[in-house]
């Protein structure tokens, strides 16, 4: 494989792997910006993947090629409901947010596997028939080089993910809602004094994170795995969490980090057939996202500052 061929293969596949990561990481940004740590992203992705696959299998005959998109809606609703559990625990019940997140992760995988076994009588679902289709973007794909890199045999979901990231940036930085969201995450007491309903803002933020994580999980399941089993979502939620931190709790930063991690993932899978890359032992590519995140946190790659009130329950009247 020549270098250019390799590039034409690697870049689209990096974007392809990054799409779910982007959505889930953006979800994480919303939650963290409001001051709620969401370790449960992994579990919310699991529920999204499971619901997406289930909806797709049951309704493929009814809805035809629209099925995968409708499955995203179903996955969004399911994950949003599960995220409410995290919201209730960590906002209203003042639970340790990390512990509640761990519980969400355990619950999600257990519940979906339980249902898979109940419905299908085996450890994984059947393969879906209606998938997201790859296509060439008209006109743009004819541009030399760039067309081959970004616009040939691409998934609509990738554009969707990037669009969501941009919309999220606009919401968080350019709207009153976003300002309130950030205020609640930095200094909830000050925000409360100014008449912002801290509890409500946090509930909304956690629900957004659940919705996006659910969509991300369903996209992953319907583009990459095409069925659901115990290992379908295997750390992608945590990688999205890493992308959020590496992107410094900024939607566009998170998107960039997710794209980069997608590149690492696609290299670790396809790298063995690419010159230069095949010299690197696979394990380095596999651990790269995690190592980079630790380095970023330690301040070796710019300073990453979490929202100040991240992880702390807000108790009215407490100093």
């Amino acid at each position: 494989m020549t270098f250019l061929e390799a590039l034409y293969f690697i870049v689209p596949s990096a974007i392809f792997y990054a799409a779910p990561l982007i959505l889930v990481a953006i979800g994480g940004v919303f939650s963290a910006r409001s001051g709620v740590v969401n370790i449960g992203l992994e579990g919310l992705m699991v529920i999204g993947a499971f619901t997406g696959i289930l909806f797709n299998l049951f309704f493929a005959d009814t809805f035809g090629s629209a099925t995968p998109w409708l499955a995203l809606v179903a996955a969004m609703v399911a994950a949003l409901l599960l995220s409410l559990l995290h919201a209730v625990a960590s906002i209203s019940f003042r639970a340790d947010q990390v512990v509640s997140g761990v519980a969400i992760n355990l619950l999600a995988i257990a519940l979906s596997l339980y249902l898979v076994k109940k419905i299908f009588g085996k450890g994984q679902t059947d393969f879906i028939t209606e998938r997201f289709a790859r296509y060439n973007v008209p006109v743009l794909s004819d541009i030399p080089f760039i067309g081959d890199l970004f616009f040939k045999s691409i998934y609509n979901t990738s554009f969707f993910a990037i669009a969501v990231a941009i919309v999220a940036w606009f919401i968080i930085y350019k709207t009153p809602f976003g300002l309130r969201l950030r205020a609640v995450g930095e200094h909830p007491m000050a925000a409360d004094t100014m008449g912002i309903n801290v509890t409500k803002m946090r509930y909304i933020a956690v629900m957004i994170s659940g919705a996006l994580a659910g969509i991300g999980g369903a996209i992953y399941a319907q583009t990459i795995s095409n069925d659901f089993g115990h290992a379908t979502i295997n750390g992608q939620g945590f990688m999205a969490l890493a992308a959020m931190i590496f992107g410094k709790w900024h939607p566009l930063g998170a998107m960039g980090a997710a794209l980069f991690f997608g590149l690492a993932q696609s290299l670790s899978i396809a790298g063995s057939s690419i010159p230069y890359i095949q010299e690197i032992p696979n394990v380095f590519l596999l651990i790269l996202p995690y190592v980079l995140t630790i380095l970023a946190l330690a301040g070796f790659i710019g300073k990453a500052n979490a929202p100040k009130a991240n992880g702390k329950p807000y108790i009215k009247g407490e100093r």
């Binding site: 625990a89 639970a95 355990l106 619950l107 995988i109 257990a110 519940l111 596997l113 339980y114």
Partner: peptide, 16 residues
């Protein structure tokens, strides 16, 4: 997996 569900719920309640 029903037992995993039970364990997750227990954690949830202890945390709350």
């Amino acid at each position: 997996e029903i037992v995993e569900i039970v364990i997750a719920v227990i954690i949830f309640f202890v945390a709350s």
